[in-house]
Design a protein around this nucleic acid. Structure first.
Lengths: 341, 341
DNA sequence: CTGAAAGCGCTTACAG
DNA sequence: CTGAAAGCGCTTACAG
């Protein structure tokens, strides 16, 4: 495994009595080389199992066909699904993705950013952590000429393209639907401010209540964190002395599923006593044996579109494109069990 | 953004009137360089935001501190959690992971393998697809000197270290527990043969039934695929003319959660009519408002141990280590709701 | 303690 | 159609 080791262009060149230049060109289908020689070289390369060294190629070409992706978390199904979309879409365009996880920590996020640029990725797709508020690090990158596109969670003071979801409007029409079903006391369960998308959902909830002259009293706003346990306990507390609500809109589906358990264990029934609604349409909803409303986010489309925006920027070379802002429409799901998956 | 572009060792060297060799050594804390010069160089590098080019460094050093990871799927929580463990553990050892998804397709898997070796990762962690039965591709890699470690799903004809879970025994003691609770007609729901881990779980189920002289009749073995929909429908069918079972052991938790919905919708109650059990202890179990038995797989530990085995091989350089086979013990969870998470 | 030389494996102009 | 020269940004011996 020493001199017989990795097979390189040099080895193939020596076998044929030509230069690596010829091999390099033939392998990349450069018209400089005769068809005959090309097929011969390709054949040999194939037989020997030759694979160009990606590091060397990247170094020489100044681009790598690698897309850097930063995700706040991978064990969340929403992000796992977006990541899946990135991988599939990248592959269709002959790019590879290099995935990094920021774990919702700003420090890790900037480490990730540094690593990806040092690696020489051609562009970066990022959804910022809950902690991140300043865009200085990312702005620096953009000024160095690295294309960056935000998906789902963007930063306001950064001049970059974004792909987001119309959370406020989605939440509003969802809650409007609950009202149409007769709900009059619709509670809210979840965080109120961060991340931004959740704030928008909360606003949508308020919009709907106000438009219908319903109770927007603070007493039926149940603030909790995103954790399952916290959402579950908060719901139990809400229900321990009778049931003050006839509907519950949750910041996301994980929160709603946790509320489902608490509601059921408290002896209330869905939708008879409480109509339950979430946001996200995650695949776990399938397991619910009760009707459940939610908002379908175009997860796959988000990944696909973000990647394609980035590719546009990468491939438009010199001339910097103007940032574009795609806002994808969500779709109301009236009953999680009546849909195609 | 042209000559002012990326800042390199050369630029720093020119500023100080020294060679890149000096910069290179100083930055890597080589004792050749005086402390004074070192701190000066580091300071400048810091100020300029210098980052060594990973491609160039990898090319020169012949190693990259990158670990290649191949996962059959990323939207499955089990794999997402193992991947999370890989990222965390790698980071503790100053390695980065490069993640590829095989999508349960053997063709994609070998593409991934080729890409990772062409990239020059120092080692590979892989769980094979459901389709993969031959180990020739991977054996070739190993012979070329690339360290490979299997996690969860291994190949029998490959000489490489493995980290797996004791599925058969875990399933057996889980089913024994169901029997202790009084179950006499325990059905099985899931695939029977593939992947291998599921076959082992099915065997464990049979072991327990036979050891207790219980009915092992084919009529209460409900074969289905891993998809939620299929598991759900199969359970509905099973229950449509009365309830032939008083316990149901499922190939994994996703299957069990799908069965939960079918059982509940069919008007049966858990655990009164049917005691339900799964395998995996995935985080979604939290949402269940009924007692549910499962087997906790040491997911994080699996990722951690596999990575560490790989690191041992990478860092033991020349001398090839003998393959090691870690079999991790699973743990019975009697009620999913009474555990720390 | 510091540098000149050579190389990692590939590609990009530029000649011929 | 083919090759000699130079370079991508870094590191590894080897001298001094």
């Amino acid at each position: 495994v020493k001199s017989s080791g990795k097979i390189t262009q040099k080895k193939i060149a020596d076998m044929l009595g030509v230069t690596t230049v010829t091999i390099s060109k033939a392998l990349r289908d450069n018209p400089d080389i005769s068809e005959k020689l090309k097929t011969k070289i390709k054949q040999i390369a194939e037989d020997l199992g030759y694979r160009p060294n990606i590091l060397a190629r990247g170094l020489a070409q100044r681009h790598t066909r690698m897309i850097g992706v930063i995700v706040p978390e991978i064990t969340t199904s929403f992000f796992a699904e977006v990541v899946e979309a990135f991988y599939q879409t990248a592959r269709e365009h002959q790019y590879e993705v290099v995935l990094m996880i920021s774990h919702e920590r700003e420090k890790d996020e900037s480490d990730n950013l540094r690593y990806l640029t040092a690696l020489g990725v051609d562009g970066i797709l990022i959804s910022v952590t809950r902690e991140t508020i300043s865009g200085t690090v990312i702005n620096k990158l953009i000024n160095q000429g690295v294309p960056v596109v935000f998906y789902d969670r963007a930063l306001e003071d950064v001049q970059a393209s974004t792909v987001t979801i119309n959370d406020r409007q989605g939440a509003q029409s969802l809650v409007q639907n609950m009202i149409n079903y007769g709900c009059k006391q619709i509670g809210y369960l979840g965080p109120l401010e961060h991340p931004l998308v959740v704030k928008h959902r909360f606003q949508g909830y308020q919009d709907a209540l106000m438009a219908n002259g319903l109770n927007t009293d603070k007493s039926i706003i149940y603030e909790c964190q995103f954790g399952k346990e916290d959402a579950y306990q908060t719901t139990l507390d809400c229900l321990k002395n009778g049931c003050p609500i006839d509907g519950l809109f949750c910041a996301n589906d994980v929160v709603a599923l946790s509320a489902y358990r608490a509601i059921t264990e408290s002896g209330y029934s869905i939708p008879k006593n409480i109509r339950l609604a979430g946001f996200g349409n995650i695949s776990e909803n399938f397991f619910l044996p009760v009707p459940f409303m939610t908002v379908a986010q175009p997860t796959f489309e988000m990944g696909q579109k973000a990647l394609e925006l980035l590719l546009d920027e990468i491939e438009s070379k010199e001339k910097k494109l103007k940032p574009r802002h795609l806002v994808l429409d969500s779709k109301i799901i009236i009953d999680n069990r009546n849909q195609d998956r």
